[in-house]
Design a protein around this nucleic acid. Structure first.
Length: 505
RNA sequence: CGGGGCGUAGCUCAGCCUGGUAGAGUACUUGUAUGGGGUGCAAGGGGUCGUGGGUUCAAGUCCCGCCGCCCCGACCA
């Protein structure tokens, strides 16, 4: 089976095809929710493990807060509730009763419970109990959890009603410290994106109208998908004293005076997997960067000569054992022998669709030559798709090969990003003409493509309406501001702020 | 919540106009010939045709109600 749609013919359908073909996830019978299948969940587990280490290295500890949050908690921070009110799942009853043969909700709760869309409010409430003195600060915690946002138009991995994420929450003595925390964690995320997921990003700060509801500053990194759209992959917020005031997180400072703490929060979700797909997958299916691949090397024994099945199995096992002792990226290799009772060629294509970085086939011919047949996923469409490599030479080079694949994947994506951030659009007319085109696969040459535009923004109120009209968003104000004065791309007025304009998911 | 479309095998769909034994491709099982770039041939298993009612000797097909899903809008840290 090849994908029904390609990136060129139908990009959104192609995305769905990849997920199905790679057996990463499927839509559940429960509307708007997804079933994450082993290969997709395996990638999430890799992300979890790598990020969890970084979270702990930066001084945070894991803990767990309740799924249900009393409705009243959301009344405490006005902006916050406004940001989430339209997508909350509300629990109003505690049991079912049989009435006229129908099961109907009964036992109405005194106070409705919200299924957490995010946990700032309930965690702030605990922080208020935990923090009495400046000696109790900072509090630095993280939780791995599921959250629910009742999205109207779900898209698998990108926008589902329930998704998995981590949310870090911290409390500090000063707003400056909260600010530093937010920036530190943005750097952790960028490290994850670039060095683990091989996704280059543009970091920056969100403009005021795109901030997290209730935040002082929201930091973000914005990768570019293969159709030139941006995907908000992770954010980090300096919440200032807003949530502390709402939840009454107060402490006595060194002078003995009561002061409100400053808080920060940060999160990334399973949406990263959507970003991974749209950054790396091709028309043959998924391509997983070696660092996050649940299995990095797949060994497929060839059984065409039935008299040699045992010998081939033994040969495959020998290769497996040898590879398991090798390392890449400072970890032992993850290798699997696929000896399921399926045709070898079917297994080979299955792992191709799943995007395993290296697929090895071993058969009687290889045993004689003491070699293996190697194929790297990122070169699947090249002419020299297969390579016979000496057994020992392959074992010795396996780690380095995976590291080279990781690097090449990152460079490919970086090249694409750099080639599609346009800085030569300087007038509102040129801006409108550019975004009049649709977002399509960036490698198409038959139609205009659309990427990011980096240009000036005056920040005036009337620009927001125009953005909405054009369905363009300001992704971020990049950290590397030029400081020059130019014309706002929306109004033509003088402006000095550089921003990234793009269509987004 | 407005506009449009669709519910038939695990999946993609035909059959409906013009009522008369439930179909194809694919996937799955078995056999066979194959086998290092996606096999060929043969046989087989799998369906309350979304749901409730109506018309009829007879309903997947015609009529009415309901439910669900998809697309376009609105909405979307």
């Amino acid at each position: 089976m090849t994908l029904q749609n390609t990136r060129s013919t139908n990009y959104p359908e192609w995305y769905q095809n990849v997920i199905t073909a790679a057996e990463m996830a499927e839509l559940s019978v429960s509307p708007g929710c997804m079933v994450i299948k082993p290969w997709g969940y395996g990638i999430w587990e890799r992300i979890q493990r790598l990020l969890d280490d970084k979270i702990k290295e930066t001084g945070h500890d894991n803990c767990y807060f309740p799924l249900f949050i009393p409705l009243s908690f959301f009344k405490k921070e006005a902006e916050h509730v406004e940001g989430f009110a339209k997508e909350m799942a509300v629990v109003t009853h505690s049991r079912l009763e049989k009435k006229d043969g129908e099961l109907v909700p009964s036992g109405e709760l005194e106070e409705p419970l919200i299924v957490r869309p995010t946990s700032e409010t309930i965690i702030a409430d605990s922080f208020a109990k935990w923090v009495k003195s400046y000696r109790d600060l900072p509090v630095m915690i993280n939780q791995w959890a599921n959250v629910v946002r009742w999205e109207m138009r779900p898209r698998i991995f990108l926008r589902t009603r329930e998704f998995l994420w981590q949310e870090g929450h911290t409390a500090h003595e000063t707003v400056e410290q909260a600010e530093e925390e937010a920036k530190t964690m943005l750097n952790v995320y960028m490290d994850l994106a670039e060095n683990c997921l091989a996704i280059p990003v543009i970091p920056g700060v969100k403009p005021p109208h795109e901030k997290f509801a209730g935040a002082v500053n929201t930091y973000t990194f914005e990768p570019m998908m293969q159709d030139g759209r941006a995907l908000q992959a992770g954010t980090s917020h300096n919440l200032g004293k807003n949530f502390a005031k709402a939840a009454n997180i107060q402490f006595q400072n060194k002078e003995g005076k009561l002061e409100y703490a400053a808080t920060a929060s940060w999160g990334v979700s399973t949406r990263l997997i959507g970003g991974l797909i749209m950054s790396h997958a091709d028309d043959e299916g998924m391509v997983v960067p070696p660092v996050v691949a649940p299995q990095q090397i797949i060994i497929i024994p060839l059984y065409k000569d039935k008299t040699k099945i045992d010998a081939v199995n033994e040969y495959a096992e020998k290769l497996y054992v040898a590879l398991k002792q090798q390392s890449a990226f400072g970890e032992k290799l993850r290798v699997r022998v696929d000896n399921r009772a399926k045709e070898a060629v079917d297994k080979m294509w299955e792992w191709t669709r799943k995007g395993a970085p290296i697929i090895i086939e071993v058969g009687p011919r290889d045993m004689e030559k003491h070699s293996v047949l190697m194929r790297t996923r990122i070169h699947i469409t090249a002419d020299n798709w297969k390579e016979f490599v000496d057994f020992d030479a392959f074992v010795a080079s396996a780690g380095a090969r995976l590291e080279a694949i990781q690097k090449e994947m990152f460079m490919r994506a970086k090249k694409r990003l750099e080639a599609n951030v346009h800085t030569d659009i300087t007038t509102p007319e040129a801006f409108e003409a550019y975004f009049a085109n649709q977002n399509v696969f960036l490698e198409r040459t038959d139609v205009p493509t659309v990427g990011f535009v980096r240009g000036k923004w005056c920040g005036d109120e009337d620009t927001l309406e125009k953005l909405k009209e054009m369905k363009i968003t300001i992704r971020c104000c990049p950290f590397d501001q030029t400081g020059t004065t130019g014309k706002c791309l929306l109004t033509g007025r003088d402006a000095t702020l550089d921003v990234i304009y793009a269509r987004a998911y």
